[in-house]
Structures are given as C-alpha cells and as structure tokens.
C-alpha cells in the first residue's frame, strides 16, 4: 500500500516535470496578460481582490477584457451571457478536437474540460506526452498550470494596481510567438499543411471583410464549411 501510494506520487511528479517546460511560454504570456487585466480592472474602480476572483471563476482571457466594458455600462447579465457564448464559441472546436484525447480519464476529465482554453488546447493538441507516462496526469498538469498562471497574473495585477515601473510594452507578444511556434510544428507534417493554410487564408479574408472586432465567428463558420466540403481531398 505504501509503495503504491509512493509510486502514484512519483507519477504525478513526473507528469508535472514533463508538463512544466511546455507551459513556460504560457507562464510569461498569462502572467503579463493577467497582470494587465488586473491593473485595468483596478483602474475601473474595483478592489484588489476582484481581478483574481473574476479570473478564477471565468478563466476566459479575451472575454474578460470585453466584460470589463460591459461591467462599466449597465446591469445586463443576459447580454453578458450571450456575448460570452459568442466570444468563446471557439471552445466548441477545441472540445471536438479533444474528444478523443480526453476519453476514459475518469475524475480528471471534468477538470480538463472546464479548464480548456486556447493555450492549453494548442499545447495538448500538438504535444504527445512521453511514452510510459499516464497521459491524463500530463494533460491535467498542463491544464492546471496554465489556469494557475492566469489566476496568479490577475491577482498580482490587482494587488500591484498602478505601481508598475518598467516598460512591459510588447511582452504579451509571447503568446503570439507561442501560436506561431505551434503552427510551425503542426506544418512539419505534410497532412496538416492544407488545413493550416486554409485556417490562415480564411481568417485573413474574414479579417479584411469583417474587421478586427467581428471576424472570428464568420471565419470559424466558413472554415468549418470548407473543411467539411473538402473532406475527401483532405482525407487522402
């Protein structure tokens, strides 16, 4: 019994050690963005603990920034709910993509589902856990590390308020860089190139047509249609 417990603890330690390096770019990105969110919320007149609370409960980066503007206009929870559905609609795609990987993971599964986000999805869809390792524990460590970075960044931003002294302009490019790295790695595989290029092309087109504030949903709809329509040639 004792040995068993020890080996479980070892498995967790190994999963954590294997997961952590993959999450370091998210660490820098989320600490910066979370910090920015915390500072911004303070400037809207909220107390130091609100940003941490909101990030821990919502955990939906870009929507939280949108929510700050909603919070400063009027009390309309239905509009906030609908807006959140639309801005976060991309999670539906991530969920579909992770259905298979998240199969049969028992108690860890609900946690993995509820902490799915752009960055966690990007890492988990591109990285295979080391062989011999319990994949569920690896996924869990990546998911919770990313979540804690976001909560921690927001907490620090909320506490520090307006005390920032060094010029952090541009630090959030770490997240852009992360997505570029993951896209580059996806494109190493020949089969992934057509859908990847389609993703870039369709989104760029939608950006030109619909503008920066409203292109994500049309881009996703068009992308879905094209992927389904071109299933045969893409499946080869």
């Amino acid at each position: 019994m004792k040995i068993q417990r020890k080996s479980v603890r070892n498995e967790w330690a190994q999963a954590f050690l294997a997961a952590f390096p993959h999450t370091v770019p998210v660490l820098t990105g989320f600490l910066t963005l979370g910090f920015a969110f915390g500072v911004l919320m303070r400037t809207k007149g909220y107390g130091p603990l609100w940003p941490f609370f909101m990030s821990a409960v919502c955990y939906c980066g870009s929507m939280q920034f949108v929510a700050l503007t909603l919070l400063s206009t009027a009390f309309d929870p239905l509009a906030a709910f609908l807006m959140s559905l639309m801005v976060n609609a991309r999670h539906l795609f991530y969920g579909i993509a992770m259905l298979d990987k998240y199969r049969g993971l028992g108690k860890l599964r609900p946690v993995l589902i509820c902490t799915l986000c752009d960055e966690t999805f990007s890492i988990l869809s591109g990285v295979t856990p080391p062989s011999q390792m319990d994949a569920g524990k690896f996924y869990f460590c990546v998911s919770l590390l990313d979540y804690s970075y976001w909560a921690l960044g927001s907490a620090l931003g909320g506490l520090a308020g307006g005390l920032i002294t060094f010029n952090t302009k541009g630090l959030d490019f770490a997240l852009t860089a992360l997505f570029i790295v993951l896209l580059t790695d996806q494109m190493r595989e020949k089969d992934n190139r057509p859908p990847a290029l389609m993703g870039i092309g369709v989104s760029a087109l939608a950006l030109v047509v619909f503008g920066a504030s409203g292109f994500v949903l049309p881009a996703m709809a068009l992308l879905m249609l094209l992927l389904i329509a071109w299933r045969k040639p893409l499946c080869r």
Binding site: Q186, P195, A196, A219
Partner: peptide, 30 residues
C-alpha cells in the same frame, strides 16, 4: 465517451487543430 464517435467528428478532430492554429495566429495580428 461510451459511444463511438461519428466519422465526421473524428475527421474534424484531426483537421481542426492545424486550421484553428492558423486562425489564432491571424487573430494575434488583428
């Protein structure tokens, strides 16, 4: 998870990650 996935969903699960990664990169440049 106790039912087999429809083939269309299996296919989407395979092509969506690279496609969405392309979208996310464009999103960062918006």
């Amino acid at each position: 998870q106790n039912k087999p996935l429809p083939r269309m969903i299996v296919y989407l699960g395979r092509v969506l990650p690279p496609a969405m990664m392309g979208l996310l990169v464009v999103y960062c440049f918006k």
